[in-house]
Design a protein around this nucleic acid. Structure first.
Lengths: 216, 216
DNA sequence: TTCTAATATGACCGTACAGTCATATGACCA
DNA sequence: TGGTCATATGACTGTACGGTCATATTAGAA
């Protein structure tokens, strides 16, 4: 983690460094990112850099942790409100917050997110944990619950795969719509987002609940 | 592309270099891959390296092109047989060859595949083309056809997103089954694979064909 | 054998890099 | 004012890298 000195910096300078680092890792990858470039672009001296971080690994972990915190603040706030809802309502909420989180990310942050699962030779237990998307564990729990109450009737692994990919698919769908419509920010219209979500939710409902009258 | 000298090498030596390069790029990424390491690990001199390739970019393009050819030989052979089949049968075939292709890949090759879409600052028109998965264009064509014949009734973009993600999901599902069952090679049992495919195919059928008796 | 062309080699060069450290700067207090 | 502590700086060092090139090796042809 960054040294105390880094957190003593004024917000502007700190965020500048973080912005530059984000771009550096996104553009050149974990093993291609260079201290020299970060130092030049963020206008600090190399000596200072090593007073903030022990090295690039340290900086990378910090960047990824920021990303993780951002995600938790999006998803976490939604989770508290799930208590009374039924299974599909719960997922509707989670998809919505998932989409909102995604659209809150910059291109560089998206790149880092995609990069994470394929980084090798990175010895940081913290990141190992982070690589496994936290909400997956939560998904599995919800699915098991829904199976036991009979809310869904489907193979557990099938349900997990289909559900855990839905957020990404909704986002892909919205991006395509954006391109086709020539509008860059369809997602900002929440009703469009909700419409897209219901499209995929219907698919889930059909696929995960056995229809009556169909025996095999 | 590699120089003639490289292709004059005997197969064993050539494949050794390719194997080392694959591992190098998979482990350290495009910008982190080093000539020195490749040279050491594959037991050739640096001078020779530069008689085979103009540099690491060149080598990378070669590796990715190999991967592309491998894919085409898997998918392409299937495409010729699609003529008479209906829409969902066509996709059944494509999913099957997709899964077979995936399981023919080494871990390193899988890593490179995942890496491709997020590599920046790579000035190679060839790769730009390759980054867009070739079969996507083919998917779109098939979908348009199926919509016009009435075989599917669904939003075009919705159909595309759902279908184009199905291969990945089938693979994810099979991998989960592998883990749960403790058997590493469930996929080699083709009937397991076909069963998984039909699971997802049913979902597609439900989602992309409007049920009778449901009006809105 | 000798000649020729293709290929192999690693020492070598200039550059870019990570990381250090003596020094400078500034801020706060006595 | 002078003293002290936290921070800033960039010149410096050793290393690793990309890329070159004169030389060595090999294979085949004459």
């Amino acid at each position: 983690m960054p040294k105390e000195t880094f957190y003593n910096l004024d917000k502007e300078k700190r965020e500048k460094i973080e912005r530059v680092a984000l771009s550096e890792f996104a553009n050149f990858g974990f093993h291609g990112a260079k201290v020299n470039r970060v130092v030049d672009k963020s206008g600090i001296s190399k000596g200072s850099f090593y007073q903030y971080f022990t090295g690039m690994d340290d900086l990378f972990v910090h960047i990824v942790e920021n990303l993780g915190k951002k995600k938790i603040s999006f998803i976490g706030s939604e989770l508290k409100l799930l208590g009374e809802k039924d299974f599909f309502e719960k997922f509707e909420s989670m998809f919505l917050s998932g989409v909102k989180f995604y659209y809150s990310l910059s291109e560089d942050e998206i790149t880092i997110s995609k990069m994470l699962p394929i980084i090798k030779n990175l010895c940081s237990e913290k990141l190992e944990v982070m690589k496994k998307e936290a909400n997956q564990i939560f998904f599995e729990h919800l699915i098991d619950e829904a199976i036991s109450t009979g809310e869904i009737q489907a193979d557990r692994d099938f349900a997990f795969v289909v559900i855990s990919n839905t957020s990404k698919q909704i986002i892909q769908y919205l991006r395509r719509k954006n391109k086709v419509m020539g509008i860059e920010k369809v997602f900002e219209n929440e009703s469009n987002v909700k419409e897209a979500i219901s499209l995929f939710l219907d698919l889930l409902k059909m696929g995960l609940t056995k229809k009556e009258g169909k025996n095999e």
